[in-house]
Design a protein around this nucleic acid. Structure first.
Length: 635
RNA sequence: GCUGGCGUAGCUCAAUUGGUAGAGCUCCUCACUUGUAAUGAGGUUGUUGUGGGUUCAAGUCCUAUCGCCAGCUCCA
């Protein structure tokens, strides 16, 4: 049979018995499992009725999943071989990019242990141990595991609440497992243990802490190499490392964890992003707001944050005996602006945006560079509109949203529409109508989306947008949320054409999410090599000898006046040295000035890629930069 | 917050079984006046995160605390 083809297998035989005679030798080496519909099964699966089977071959995601799951079992077997059965086993699934297995052991696993485990695994793989499946009554399985003192397995089976469970045996190792698995361990061509970390039994922090060993496996050594290289690449691009090297930001113990200090270059980068953001909002008919960082505690009572968000809020401070709290969100302030005047239906929609800095408590272990902080700036906006305006407003938000993300170099999206959860406020009619409006707006914009049923926030449906970075990792930045709750709590109203009061619908939205986090993502996406339009430094002047210092100063002042982000390196150093430093600093243009340029009133432009442009007048360089910035920024 | 690992100069790192800290870069000085990725010489730099403790002696051991890292957890 041909690759990818399906075949009907009569009842009574195992997948292996039925399938192997039908495929070539070459295909046998390539086939690791099979599929019945969407369900993965392995060679040992016994077919109880006539079934349509599709072989699963190396090269598919399913095959990788099976491989990694089996490798997890081999690792568990190796761990038992090396450290004995005092090491208790929990669960060992395949995950994105690899697998893990959770163990309970008194001593921690060390890097040296990894070598031992890997060495043993290599032996086990060579032995081509078959994976065998058996089914057994749950009660018998529980007894077996009780006898072996495997309490995690006992609990798993008890919670399953089924009559029979399946076991997989490989070598001396028997594990409760749904499967499927590889035919035998020889398919495991290349694997690596990556790290060990604590993990709670069943993710519950009140329960035992287990040791989780992470690893990965591939059918091809080249793929493993590629994967390890991509981990290295991610390390090189780590925004914490680049942020230090490029002098963008710093975090100081004495100031506090999760609090960012922007250095001049980082501040410049941020200003450019903020300016672009403000300009685009102005062009899309938004008005800008500024609101304070603290408010009376009563405000947070009214908004409901004290009831359902206080875990993330900092303790109150007393001002003239009145309690105030740092803001975790900007919305109540924007509502305050709305409620500062009597509004007419003719005023709607209002679109108010703010780069609002909020403070939220994050657990110490969650903090991470710019990506997870305690004080951050949301690129926030709130739109107040009538129900009829909702669809158009969502459409316009999507338009602005995608435009901004695209301009920053993110053309790929995953979009999710989350619908009403069980616990929620608002009427069915409102939910249905709003959810429909979100759908229509997405469709009108021609966007594919996935529905996340019941994943909406309690106050309304929402759209989340994930972007993909240069390394293929996805990040959720944008969120667009409809809110029926706050307008009610703050008694918001506008006068309709019928001269009676109506409640506006509120939309919360953030496009970049948090500026800090977005900049962290940008640093990693571009590996610090920013496009000219938002590079904190656009050019650096390098003179060759002191003889051109005065001319260079003039060029510097001239370009700075023209708004070019320019630096000068007029030190008495060799040109090679200065070029190296500018290169390491990832400066887009180096302006080299020797006697020739001084005499002709020009600069020689060296690009980041090492190539030179012919000498050009300073004004031409400024015009070139200007044109490139306009191209990148859009106008 | 939890588990494990870690904390030495501004940065990157070194200090044999405990024996009063060292290198490169940065920075400063001098010489060199240099044409496309590191010129040479000299010099400064630390309460070894912080507080206790053990010891004749602690960067090394114990303890508390702060912070960082990998995960877990959390992220209406």
């Amino acid at each position: 049979m041909k690759d990818g083809e399906s075949v009907t297998i009569p009842a009574g035989s195992s997948v292996q018995e039925a399938l192997l005679p039908l495929i070539s030798n070459k295909q046998r080496k390539q086939t690791v499992a099979a599929k019945i519909g969407d369900e993965l099964v392995d060679f040992t699966t016994l077919l109880t009725k006539d079934t349509v089977l599709t072989p699963v071959q190396i090269g598919t995601d399913e095959a990788l999943e099976v491989l990694r799951h089996s490798t997890a079992h081999i690792m568990a077997l190796a761990v038992r071989d090396v450290f004995g059965t005092d090491v208790k086993i929990a669960i060992g699934p395949s995950i994105e990019n690899g697998f893990y297995y959770d163990f309970a052991r008194t001593e921690p696993f060390t890097p040296e242990d990894f070598e031992k485990i890997e060495a043993r695994m290599t032996q086990l793989v060579r032995e081509a141990l078959p994976f065998k499946r058996t089914e057994i009554a749950s009660s018998a399985a529980i007894e077996k595991f009780k006898a072996e003192d495997e309490k995690y397995k006992v609990e798993l089976i008890e919670d399953l609440g089924v009559e029979t469970v399946s076991f997989y045996h490989v070598g001396e190792f028997t594990d409760l497992c749904r499967g499927p698995h590889l035919p035998n361990s020889s398919f495991i061509k290349s694997f690596k243990l990556l790290r060990v970390a604590g993990a709670y039994w069943r993710g519950d922090e009140k329960r035992d802490v287990l040791q989780r060993i992470y690893g990965t496996a591939f059918f091809d050594k080249k793929d493993l190499k590629k994967y390890l290289a991509s981990i290295e690449e991610a390390k090189k691009r780590d925004h914490r490392k680049l942020g230090k090297e490029l002098e963008l930001f710093t975090i100081k113990d004495e100031i506090g964890p999760g609090l960012i200090l922007w250095q001049p270059k980082g501040a410049q980068l941020r200003r450019l992003i903020e300016d672009f953001w403000k300009d685009e909002h102005y062009r899309h008919d938004y008005e800008l707001l500024y609101t304070p960082h603290i408010a009376r505690q009563d405000l947070w009572k009214t908004s409901g944050h004290l009831d359902f968000y206080s875990e993330n809020m900092y303790s109150p401070m007393l001002i003239d005996d009145v309690k105030y709290q740092l803001k975790p969100m900007n919305c109540p302030f924007h509502i305050g602006v709305f409620n500062s005047a009597k509004r007419s239906y003719k005023d709607l929609p209002v679109r108010w945006c703010e780069l609002g800095t909020v403070y939220r408590y994050e657990r110490a272990g969650a903090l991470h560079g710019l990506l997870r902080v305690r004080g951050f700036t949301q690129d926030d906006a709130h739109i107040f509109c009538t129900p009829d305006q909702l669809e158009d407003e969502i459409f316009n938000i999507l338009d602005l949203n995608l435009h901004i993300l695209q301009t920053f170099g993110f053309p790929e999206y995953e979009i999710f529409l989350s619908t009403r959860p069980e616990k929620s406020v608002g009427t069915d009619k409102n939910w249905d109508k709003s959810t429909e409006a979100l759908k229509l707006a997405l469709e009108k914009k021609g966007l594919d989306y996935t529905i996340d049923p019941g994943e909406g926030v309690f106050y309304g449906p929402k759209i989340d947008i994930k972007i993909k970075d240069q390394l293929g990792r996805s990040w959720q930045c944008s969120t667009i949320q409809v809110d029926f709750n706050l307008p009610e709590r703050f008694k918001m109203s506008y006068t309709g054409a019928d001269n009676s009061d109506h409640q506006p619908i509120m939309i919360h939205r953030a496009l970049m999410g948090s500026l800090e986090r977005f900049i962290g993502i940008l640093i990693e996406h571009y590996a610090g090599v920013f496009p000219l339009w938002f590079a904190p430094v656009q050019a650096r002047i390098l003179n060759i000898t002191d003889d051109q210092a005065e001319y260079s100063e003039g060029v510097y002042k001239n370009l700075r006046k023209l708004g070019i982000r320019i630096e000068k390196d007029l030190r008495n150093e060799k040109l090679n040295y200065k070029i190296r430093e500018a290169q390491v600093a990832k400066v887009p243009y180096m302006l080299i000035i020797g006697d020739k340029e001084k005499d002709e009133g020009t600069v020689t432009v060296r690009l980041r890629n090492g190539k030179n442009l012919p000498p050009m007048p300073v004004a031409d360089f400024a015009a070139m930069v200007d044109a490139e910035v306009k191209k990148g920024r859009g106008y």
